[in-house]
């Protein structure tokens, strides 16, 4: 491989002219600026006290007050913001974990067993991929209000543990990465079907499972319409809804603006950590989803 590739590259090297290479790098530089400046601005703004926020240069630091700002946020209204963060972590973390388990089981069954109605079932789930979460928010509200369960933790948590896209991804991945021979071998060794799934299949499907987890986590973390329509009690709010409410009060309560900014910064940190630490997995997993 490398033996055949090396001469090609060498021969090909000079053809990429300096002109097209610098053109490409210019595009990359402009885009980096576009994508990172808003995040940089947010970080810098979160380190400023109220006076500096309006009076100092927006894209560079004044006095570094990040820690004080976080402490103030924690003291504001008995740490309501951190209650929201905790709620979001619970909704998104536990929700994505359960969603991943169920979607993987379903996708594995669709890939590795033939049973009556299998394709119909898969097509119904695929139809579900095309039904966006926001379109379901009001219908879900109608269902939960029938049983008097709106404005509860479960009214936001339960709908978010269903991931049709996860089933789709799990099926494709199980088909290509869990060999029938291996399942058959486990069977001959006397391993039950369920045990085979948990000991053999899940190990092979880890990249797909991490991808499903991560994307479901992001979906739930970003979810806004469902909690907006379901929840009245602000102690149950996820962080997106809480910050939205605060942001809409900035005109009446000006000091809240600082809390919105520092809160916005803190709310994106968990996702950035999750993406950075798991990128080895989701990159390969996403590729599978896009291929088919």
């Amino acid at each position: 491989m490398s033996a055949t590739k090396a001469p090609v590259k060498k021969h090909n090297g000079p053809r990429e002219s300096l002109f097209s290479r610098s053109g490409a790098m210019l595009v990359m530089a402009i885009c980096t600026f576009y994508f990172l400046i808003p995040i940089w601005w947010l970080f810098v703004a979160a380190t400023k006290d109220r006076g500096d926020f309006t009076s100092s240069a927006p894209l560079w630091f004044a006095d570094f007050n990040l820690v004080e700002n976080i402490v103030n946020l924690a003291n504001y209204r008995d740490g309501l913001f951190f209650q929201w963060m905790l709620n979001s972590i619970l909704y998104a973390g536990a929700g994505a974990a359960v969603a991943t388990l169920f979607a993987t089981m379903m996708g594995y069954a669709l890939a590795k067993y033939s049973f009556r109605g299998r394709e119909t079932l898969f097509n119904v789930v695929l139809g579900g991929v095309l039904v966006p979460a926001t379109a379901l928010a009001l219908p879900l509200f109608l269902v939960f209000s029938q049983v008097g369960a709106t404005n509860t933790f479960w009214s936001v948590f339960l709908p978010s543990i269903v991931s049709p896209f996860g089933v789709y991804l799990a099926r494709i991945y199980a088909t290509s990465s869990v060999p029938d021979e291996l399942v058959e071998a486990a069977r001959i060794d006397g391993s039950g079907e369920v045990r085979t799934f948990f000991t053999v299949a899940t190990r092979l499907m880890t990249p797909a499972m991490v991808t499903i987890f991560l994307f479901q986590f992001v979906t739930i973390w970003n979810n806004f319409f469902l909690p907006l329509i379901m929840l009245r009690d602000e102690k149950l709010f996820p962080v997106t809804l809480g910050l939205y409410i605060w942001n809409s009060q900035v005109n009446q309560i000006p000091e809240i603006r600082a809390y919105v900014i520092i809160g916005a910064l803190l709310s994106i940190i968990p996702l950035i950590i999750a993406f950075l630490s798991l990128q080895r997995f989701w990159r390969s997993g996403l590729g599978t989803g896009a291929l088919k």
């Binding site: 069954a109 109608l142 339960l158 269903v162 039950g192 369920v194």
Partner: peptide, 20 residues
């Protein structure tokens, strides 16, 4: 086994996708 694998998702999907 198939029932075990597909039941949780299918029930939730029916309750929170199809029923709504």
């Amino acid at each position: 086994a198939v029932l075990f694998f597909i039941a949780p998702f299918s029930i939730l999907f029916s309750l929170f996708y199809i029923l709504p």
